[in-house]
Structures are given as structure tokens and as C-alpha cells.
Design a protein around this nucleic acid. Structure first.
Length: 677
DNA sequence: ACAGAATCAAATTAT
DNA sequence: TTGATTCTGT
């Protein structure tokens, strides 16, 4: 506790009741959380298994774990829970499955699976409308609104349709013995609300709870927090209302105010000293965020010097922007004697990464794109996971359909339809139906042959994987399973190109390695493994020894990170305050909604600015292709709000160069000394 | 095996 | 309108 300021120390030591730590950007909140955990264990005699720390992302959870391992021995952290809200939900349901109306091997469907489910419920090809419905259902769930309650709230015809879908959506999920992401919070909440016994059990088990990024909690998560801590209310919530950027997925800053109402004895601690950025950067950030109405008064200050000038550069278009930033990146690395990892390029939306990637590749600048879901979206990966899901959960119809038809084995549309019909008549899952002898009389002989071959295959592996007496190590099982499926051959059959097949097979091998690693690390069986897979994103796979690369990241994914040098690109009206509505949704003109949106965008800008430690460079494009046509853009209002001393008209060293000239110039720079590799 | 043509979907942020 | 993926013809 030596290296802490008074406020941090107070936050760590305060144990007389619930506390809320308002931690401004860069004020050392992770240090406080990890410090407090260490303090509880080392000084206060808490056992690690009584302590639960909750974050929003796996990345944050991992970060916290690694910081903790510097403060505590392995033996001291045994049994400690550091996980995301959603993983905690899975763990809860693994134990309380019965009370939630599930079996232990329930499936966790990701949003893509769920979108497919919704599509099967409402007949439409309009993806925008489907997504709108999905979003709506999700928001209801996050606000603890049941389908019945939603029916009373629905105003428009479109909302009424969504209610209807919500009903059948929930019913279908239950029938599949599956849950979506929102259920991982909602179901534990409902179970805790309904059962005194379960409540006491968990409240007794959890001696102290810490919540990171509290400003991003939704109503449901807040309720869960209350149930878990009970009237003892031994918890610390850490958050910053100025960094609340997840309103669109149901998070509500009101939870901060609500905390004070619900716990009048709440101790409020503010961390206002910033250890991250220079004065210039901090002052720009402060001025931007000052344009928002504030919930809590908070003034960030820093002992660092004034620092480098913040630059704003106008660019002709996306390409020029990307190339210019790449060049300046290269130049700055040499000038500042920095490493690639000291730089980040941040942007509002994922699409902006494309052009940027291309430009970086042209200049041989190594980079890592943070975020994006690509790996677990690949069809190879989803195919394999479907088999695992099917083994773990015989009610998982989507998994059944996918596994039964991939690779082709004589089970097609007609067979599936017959199975589906038989199943729904008797309230069975497709897999249960398919394994009934009666199918022999329902299906033509050839189809029945194919089907029973598949069913034998499935039950053979199920017996070895999930059923307790014969539980085998996951390693061996996975290898044999993939062999038995003949998946490699399937890939060669399906893809016309051998190279494509090879790379897909490699993806599968990567997946298997990753699964095995996870299973070993956490001592998980197949069921548990599969339940956690859906929660994992690309980010978490990066176990590579930190390579020296530039980071490309969305503003959302950049929260919690910091870099010496930051480029924030695409700072334009329409993009950085992002305007534009999602497609299918009807939208009354509501001034309050509009300004709430701008305020969230402003917080996003604030997050972006405060990622920078020493230098910050902003760019915007005079023209950009937005939605199908090139449009003229204006500089973002947020630039002006930063109150920079003077905005130089242009800082682009290659302003008048053609793309080719830019590249040539860079190449000559590279050969002069800096090694980009 | 590869290139050009036809077809299709796309609209923020993410567990 | 693009860009990406799939199909088709050589």
C-alpha cells in the first residue's frame, strides 16, 4: 500500500460497508481493485474463495488476474473468483440449473445463433428488422421485463410483434435447453429472487464482491449484484460516469445514483489524480466532458508536464488518412525511439480498420486488430462446436441440425422435416426423436439407415464424454471425435481449392489446441468447456508472447487500455458523434433521446482522448463514403470542445503526395535505419 | 486452376 | 454503390 495516494488507500482500506469508488480515467482503478483483494487476503484474513471480482470483458479479467499474481502467491489466490458477469452467470447456472428450469448441460447460444432462431420465428428476409427485434428483446431482458410485462408496455404494432416474438423466443430457448447471453444474468437473478435458500447460500459464500466498470451495468446486473451481496452489502463498486459508453446495450448510469438511494450508508470515494496523461491531454479531455451534464463533480488533475501539442489534421479521404497516419507512425517511432507497441490507432467503427490495415501492410508496419469476432464466426469452428454442443446437450436442436448435415451423410431437408414434425408432436427434442425406434416407420429405409448411423455415432461419443462414470480426458476425446467425423476430408470435399481447405483445417486444429488448453487450465469437462466457449472472443486467444505491434482498436474496445502515442482517426460529424439509426426500427423524433446519444458519443470521445499518455493526434476526412455514396464531411464538434490553443491547418508531411510517392518516401525512410518487421 | 461474371447483402458499438 | 463471395467457363 506504499505506492498509493490517500484516496486510493482509503478505497482499499474501507471495509465498514458498501463503497463506491469514482475513478477518473487513469486514476489507478485496477490498482485499487487488485490492491484491495490483496489487502483482504493478506491483512484481513479473508479466504480467497470468499472473494469475487467481476469485470465486463475477459480481457479485463485476465489483466486483473495477472496483476494479482504480482501481489499474491499462487497459494493465496487459490479459489479466488475473477471473472466476467457472464462467466459468473454460467458458473451460477452450473449449480442452480434445476431452479432455472435447465439441465446441467444447457447450451449457451451466441448472438448469431439467436438471430437465426429469431429468423425461424418471424418469416422475413429483412436482416435489419430481425436485428431490431433481437435488440428489443435484449433490452427488455436487461431491464428485467418479462414477455408478459412487455405486452403491457408495447405501444406500436411493431413493438407488439416483438413481444410476440419474445414469447416464442423464450419458449424455444427453453425447449432447446439453451440460454442466450442476457439469460446468463437474467436467470440467476430470477432464481435468486424466487428462492430464499439459494439466496442465502450464495450470500453466505460470497464474503466480498468487487465490481469493475460499474457504470456499464444494466438493471439486471445491478439486481444480481444486490442479491449476491444481500443486506451485509460488503462490496466495492468501481466506475466512472464519464466513461459510460454502453447505454445502447442497456447499461444505465442511473445505477450509480440508485446505489446511493439503495444504500444510504454508501461510502463515496473519488480518485481524481491522473497518473497517465500530460496536462494538455487531460485538459482537452476535461473540456470535452465538461459539455455533458454531470452526475458527480470530479476534477482530474495530473503532475505531469504540459507535454506535446495535440494536432488536428484534415484529410481528403479515408485512404489519405490511413496512409498519412501510417507514415507519421513510422516517422514517430524513429524520432521518439519508441516501439510499435507504444502506438495505437483508435476509431469509432470497425470498418475503419480495413483501410488502415491495408495502409499499414503497405508500409510493413506490424499491427494487431483488437476486437472483431472473426475466429469464432468461421464456419469450420461453428461446425465443430455444434458437435460438442450436441454431445453436451441432447435438446440443442440447432446443434443437431448443423451436426447431422455436416458433413453430408444422407440426412437432408426431408429427413430433418420428418424428425422435426415427429419431435414437435411429442414434445421431444430432435435428437430424442431421431433416436426413437419409431422413426423406422416414419422414414424411408435409406433415410433411416443414414439417420441411425449418425445416432449410433453420437451416442457412442456421448457415453464417453459427458456421462459421469466414463468421463475421459477432453484431449483424447476431441482428437478422436474430429477423426471420427472425418472433418478433414469433408473440408477438402467442400472447398474447391486445396489451399482453402488446408487453411480451414488449420483453423480447426487451432481451435482444438485452444480448447485443450482451456480444459486443462481450468480443469473443465466437455460440458463446461462448451458453455464457456460462446463467451470467448478473438481477443482472448492472443496468448502469444506480447509481440511488438501497433494496436488498432475501436474506441469501445480501447477502454481500459493506455498508450504513449495515440492517433484518433475519423473525428467527423456523423462518425464520431455517430449519427444514424439502425435500419428497420421506427423512430419518433425525440430531442431527449438525441441529446442522450450525443452525450454518450461525447463520453466515447473522452475515452479516446484519455487513452493517450504523451501524444495525441486527431485526423478527420473532408470526404468519406458513408452508406453507399461519397459524402462531404465536417469536422467533429468535439474538436472545438477540446479548446486547443491553435489548430494548425495541416500537419500532414505527405500532404501533396500521390499514394505511390508516400510509399516510396516511407521505403527510403525504412532503409535509412529503422527496421520495420 | 484461375479469372471474370453474376449474385447478394449491407446500417455502430459487443458479452 | 461496393465489396465479397460464389459460380461458370476456359
Amino acid at each position: 500500500m506504499v505506492n498509493m495516494n490517500d484516496a486510493q488507500r482509503e478505497a482499499v482500506h474501507y471495509l465498514d460497508g458498501p463503497s463506491l469508488v469514482l475513478a477518473g480515467a487513469g486514476s489507478g482503478k485496477t490498482r485499487v481493485i487488485t490492491g484491495k483483494i490483496a489487502y483482504l487476503i493478506k491483512t484481513c484474513g479473508y479466504s480467497a474463495r470468499q472473494i469475487v471480482a467481476v469485470t465486463f470483458t475477459n480481457k479485463a479479467a485476465l489483466e486483473m488476474q495477472s496483476r494479482l499474481s504480482l501481489l499474491l502467491d499462487k497459494s493465496q489466490t487459490r479459489g479466488l473468483t475473477v471473472s466476467t458477469f457472464h462467466s459468473l452467470g454460467v458458473r451460477f447456472l452450473r449449480e442452480e440449473f434445476a431452479a432455472a428450469g435447465l439441465k446441467q448441460g444447457f447450451s449457451v447460444l451466441d448472438s448469431q445463433d439467436c438471430l437465426g432462431l429469431i429468423q425461424s420465428l418471424i418469416a422475413t428476409t429483412d436482416r435489419g428488422r430481425l436485428k431490431a427485434v433481437q435488440q428489443r428483446i435484449s433490452l427488455w431482458k436487461n431491464a428485467l421485463v418479462t414477455p408478459d410485462q412487455a405486452a403491457h408496455l408495447a405501444e406500436s404494432a411493431q413493438a407488439l410483434e416483438a413481444v410476440h416474438t419474445y414469447h416464442s423466443y423464450q419458449a424455444t430457448l427453453r425447449a432447446y435447453q439453451s440460454v442466450d447471453f442476457d439469460d446468463l444474468i437474467l436467470l440467476p437473478c430470477q432464481v435468486l429472487a424466487a428462492s430464499e435458500t439459494v439466496r442465502q447460500k450464495w450470500q453466505h459464500r460470497i464474503g466480498y464482491l468487487l465490481v469493475d466498470e460499474y457504470q456499464d451495468t444494466n438493471q439486471c446486473q445491478y439486481q444480481l449484484l444486490k442479491y449476491l451481496t444481500g443486506s451485509r452489502a460488503m462490496f466495492t463498486a468501481v466506475g466512472d460516469d464519464d466513461q459510460a459508453i454502453y447505454g445502447w446495450r442497456g447499461a444505465t448510469v442511473e445505477n450509480l445514483a440508485r446505489l446511493q438511494q439503495d444504500f444510504p450508508e454508501l461510502r463515496l470515494i473519488k480518485l481524481e489524480q491522473n497518473y497517465r496523461s500530460t496536462q494538455r491531454i487531460l485538459s482537452a479531455a476535461n473540456q470535452v466532458i465538461a459539455c455533458n451534464p454531470k452526475l458527480f463533480d470530479k476534477t482530474l488533475w495530473s503532475e505531469h508536464g504540459t507535454g506535446e501539442t495535440i494536432t488536428v489534421t484534415r484529410m481528403d479521404g479515408e485512404l489519405a488518412e490511413a496512409q498519412s497516419v501510417s507514415m507519421r507512425l513510422s516517422a514517430a517511432r524513429v524520432e521518439k525511439q519508441a516501439q510499435w507497441r507504444d502506438f495505437a490507432v483508435l476509431y469509432r467503427s470497425n470498418q475503419q480498420a480495413r483501410v488502415m490495415e491495408q495502409a499499414l501492410r503497405d508500409l510493413r508496419i506490424p499491427y494487431t486488430v483488437s476486437g472483431g469476432q472473426s475466429f469464432f464466426d468461421k464456419s469450420e469452428v461453428r461446425d465443430v462446436l455444434a458437435y460438442l454442443r450436441l454431445l453436451a446437450n441432447d435438446a440443442d436442436d440447432p446443434a443437431f441440425i448443423r451436426a447431422a448435415t455436416t458433413p453430408r451423410r444422407g440426412i437432408g431437408q426431408a429427413t430433418l422435416q420428418a424428425i422435426g414434425q415427429y419431435a414437435s408432436q411429442r414434445q421431444l427434442s430432435m435428437r430424442q426423436a431421431a433416436s426413437e425406434q419409431a422413426m423406422a416407420s416414419v422414414l424411408p429405409a435409406r433415410q433411416f439407415e443414414a439417420l441411425s448411423g449418425f445416432m449410433t455415432f453420437v451416442s457412442r461419443f456421448e457415453a464417453r464424454s459427458v456421462k459421469p462414470p466414463h468421463q475421459e480426458p477432453v484431449d483424447q476425446l476431441l482428437d478422436e471425435l474430429i477423426q471420427a467425423i472425418g472433418y478433414e476430408n469433408h473440408l477438402y470435399d467442400v472447398s474447391s481449392d486445396d489451399r482453402a481447405a488446408q487453411s480451414k483445417w488449420q483453423t480447426v486444429l487451432d481451435l482444438l489446441e485452444w480448447l485443450k488448453g482451456r480444459a486443462k487450465e481450468s480443469d473443465w469437462n466437455l460440458e463446461t468447456l462448451v458453455q464457456h466457449v460462446a463467451l470467448v472472443t478473438m481477443l482472448d486467444r492472443q496468448t502469444d508472447e506480447s509481440p511488438d505491434t501497433v494496436t488498432l482498436s475501436t474506441l469501445h474496445a480501447a477502454k481500459g487500455l493506455e498508450f504513449p502515442h495515440v492517433f484518433l482517426i475519423g473525428v467527423e460529424e456523423g462518425l464520431l458523434p455517430h449519427l444514424g439509426r439502425s435500419s428497420g426500427d421506427e423512430e419518433p423524433n425525440d430531442a431527449a433521446v438525441d441529446s442522450a446519444r450525443i452525450e454518450e458519443e461525447r463520453r466515447l470521445m473522452y475515452v479516446g482522448i484519455t487513452r493517450a499518455q504523451r501524444s495525441l493526434h486527431l485526423t478527420w476526412c473532408a470526404r468519406r463514403r458513408r452508406q453507399r455514396e461519397e459524402r462531404v464531411c465536417e469536422v467533429s464538434r468535439f474538436i472545438q470542445e477540446m479548446g486547443l490553443e491553435q489548430v494548425k491547418p495541416s500537419e500532414d508531411p505527405g500532404e501533396n503526395m500521390t499514394p505511390k510517392a508516400r510509399i516510396d518516401m516511407l521505403k527510403s525512410m525504412l532503409s535509412k535505419g529503422s527496421r520495420a518487421r
